[in-house]
Amino acid sequence: MAAAAKKRSRGASSPVYLLLVFSLFSGGHSFSRQLVVELNPGSPFTPPGGELLHVRAVGDNDTLHFLFCSQGAPTLLLVHTNTSSSTVKVNWSQFVSRNHSGSLKVEPESSVLHSTAVVFSRLLEYDDVNDTAEPTSDLLPPYELQDFSWSRLRLSGPTALLCGAAAAFANGSLCLQLSVFESAGRGQSWPRLLHTANSSQVGVWIDGVLPRANRSRFLLELQAVGGAYPLSRVEVHRSIDDEFTPSIFKVSQWVSAENGSSDVLGFVQWKPVAYRQPAPTLEDATPCRHSDPRPQSGEAAAAASGLIRAFYGKTEAFGLNVSFGLAGEPFYDSTKFLSWTLLVGSGSPPMDSFSPLVLSMMAVGLGTPLILLLVGGVYVCVRKRAAASTATYEPIN
């Protein structure tokens, strides 16, 4: 009876064990934030020259403030505070003049733990005559995004779409789409980046832009601005699991950390892939590369972005380029479309673990040979024992 009870106990614990294993490897997180979306917070008028979106993501005892602005070059500012009651205050007359530091504040100022801003500063184009995908002396005059004509922000919940154009674009456009999240999840379309409640996603695409050369390729310049610890280094992590982004086994992370510390304060994360069609497929994927981050002029970043000037005083900046396409890949003119996706967040970047599908395949692949070896060993032992017993003499009656 006791043995039966023990057997029932083992049987009952098996589903619980399987559920625990699944929860450990599924990458899910129960943490969530309450989102409050506000366009041009506290403004008595529609600001000229660009708008300001504020998404307040409130946790149990902290707040993330996502500020997305089109005053000058498009900029995303993320401010992390240690209270759930912090607010954003804007002096609009100073803000739209774009020459006053401190015209945008997060209060109480003593609650600010960390801040990171990413400026989408320039779009560069080059004529890849020899199909080397090496932008050297063939760079064409850059598109300064601070000089673009930007549309009004189009909102859909915690998602905002911003599109702009230059005169040379003809009927084409450069668009950025910001999404902020209440909880952990994954993008619906490739590259299907894993996000948490501490991160936002920015999709960037070039659509219908008239190329200025027959073999044009593009680069996007990003500038990162921070307080004491700006984004200063890029880490590349590898994986053997490409279930969610087929053929891509790497993820790049541009991170900020305290000197001598391994704790990440903020990050920009992306997978090194772009797509040449609005509906991504494996056939339309094209690799992308990044340059090493280099120190930039904080004053130049502030001049390009009204949000940088408004929030920061003197600050450091780092910049890098993301180039799209490798040698032998189709040129931009093949589809006249290019999209790329990145995450911007606070704390450590989300990391993909092995999915249940991959784990089950590994279990089958590794477990089946072990079972065959075990069964084979038992069979050999039984055969040897049977052969030994038949070889002995039987007693004669």
Rank of each mutant, 00 (worst) to 15 (best):
A4Y: 04
A12Q: 15
P15M: 05
S23C: 09
G28I: 09
S30F: 14
S30V: 15
Q34M: 12
V37E: 01
F45Q: 05
G49C: 05
L52A: 02
H54P: 01
G59Y: 09
G59V: 08
N61Y: 13
H65G: 04
A73F: 07
T75M: 07
V79W: 12
V88K: 06
K89T: 13
V90G: 10
E107Q: 12
P108W: 08
P108G: 03
E109N: 13
E109A: 15
V112R: 11
H114Q: 09
S121T: 15
D127F: 02
D127T: 02
D128P: 00
V129P: 00
E134P: 00
Q146K: 15
F148P: 01
W150V: 02
T159H: 04
A165H: 13
A166S: 14
N171I: 03
L174N: 01
E182R: 08
E182A: 11
R186E: 09
R186F: 03
Q188H: 08
S199N: 04
I206W: 01
V209P: 01
L210W: 04
P211D: 02
F218Q: 00
G227C: 07
L231D: 02
T245E: 13
I248F: 04
V251S: 14
D263Y: 09
D284G: 13
D284S: 15
R289E: 02
S291L: 04
P293C: 08
E299P: 00
A304P: 02
S305T: 10
S305V: 08
L307S: 03
A310F: 01
T315M: 03
L320I: 02
G328F: 05
K336A: 09
F337V: 01
S346E: 02
G347T: 07
G347S: 13
M362S: 11
A363G: 09
V364C: 12
G367W: 08
L374Y: 11
L374H: 08
G376I: 08
A386F: 07
A387P: 02
A391V: 10
T392F: 07
Y393H: 08
E394V: 11
N397Q: 06
N397P: 13
